[in-house]
């Protein structure tokens, strides 16, 4: 009894300290959310306002749901083609990075081979190379091989950007599927390949789809390589970069929203698998 009473002031001190800590954490969370959400919010409000409202003052806090800006943007010369290029390059990137990344992820999760840890590290290291450093030699090489200004050429560059993520996400996916299931399939008459298709693939499919969407998004958002390596076949990002500094403000907002919103939706759809990847990468 007395012991408990003697501890009361200490407990109170702890309590207040904990409350202060919690307040600080909430403040940090609110700040971070505002940091990310506010620009997106302003972007969307302005994209959904009429051209006059965008340039006028004071600003409205709620969109007027006027499609003037958007429809002007869509009908702007070259936008449709750039949009098509973006989708084409992103789709190619998606196919290439899953086609190469998923087998690598599977090998990392299932086999022990010399240099495995080094390989995993190397996969991450490729992200440490600044793209501008590679851009000039790449452009020269692409011109020599005739890959410059083609969707395939740009997709190859984007694949190198997306591949590390594809490898790490699929690695964590395959690691989460017990090897015992494959062995059971072998004892039930499967070859290695059959066991993979009949047992591992169906279980990994949602995650692989997520990883594909992520690769798509990386390509969709990439602007530097796109701007350097394409002239005629601009993707949407490169097109906007080139033409928007000479275009009116409301067009910039509409173009920005057209880029950000699909990417946001994609990432939101696959967030679960991205967290899984980061869990593995942090280890």
């Amino acid at each position: 009894m007395t012991a408990i009473l003697a501890d009361a002031p200490a407990a109170a001190r702890w309590d207040s300290r904990r409350r202060a800590g919690r307040f600080l954490m909430f403040a940090a969370i609110v700040l971070l959310c505002a940091w990310v959400l506010l620009p997106i919010y302003l972007l969307i409000v302005n994209a959904l306002s009429s051209p006059n409202e965008v340039t006028g003052f004071p600003k409205r806090m709620l969109p007027s749901f006027d499609t003037g800006s958007i429809s002007f943007f869509i009908n702007f010369a070259g936008v449709a083609k750039a949009l098509w290029n973006s989708i084409l390059v992103a789709a190619l990137t998606m196919v290439l990075s899953i086609g190469i990344g998923a087998p690598a992820g599977y090998a990392l999760s299932r086999f022990d081979f010399p240099g495995k840890e080094a390989f995993r590290f190397l996969v991450l290291m490729t992200r440490a190379f600044p793209l501008p450093l590679l851009a000039l030699p790449l452009a020269v090489m692409f011109i020599r091989t005739g890959l410059d200004d083609t969707p395939v050429g740009l997709a190859i560059v984007h694949t190198t950007l997306a591949l590390p993520f594809a490898v790490l996400i699929t690695f964590s996916l395959f690691s989460g599927i017990p090897f015992e299931l494959e062995e059971a399939a072998w004892t039930l008459g499967c070859t290695r390949l059959q066991a993979f298709w009949k047992v591992v693939m169906p279980l990994a499919l949602p995650g692989i789809a997520a990883s594909a969407v992520f690769a798509f998004t990386i390509s969709w958002n990439e602007v530097f390589a796109a701007a350097v390596l394409t002239i005629e076949n601009r993707t949407l990002t490169a097109f906007l970069l080139q033409s928007l500094n000479v275009s009116p403000l409301y067009l910039k907002f509409a173009g920005g929203a057209a880029l950000v919103v699909p990417a946001l939706i994609f990432i939101f759809a696959v967030r679960k698998y991205l967290f899984a990847m980061w869990g593995i990468a942090n280890r």
Binding site: E180, A184, V199
Partner: peptide
């Protein structure tokens, strides 16, 4: 020989029941 050519069947410690198949399809798998 690989496991499939040995005329064996195995019961694993953690059962290894395929989660994406029904019980029926699990038994029918082999």
């Amino acid at each position: 020989l690989p496991p499939r050519d040995r005329g064996i069947a195995m019961v694993f410690q953690n059962y290894a029941v395929f989660p994406h198949l029904t019980v029926y399809e699990n038994i029918a798998f082999g």
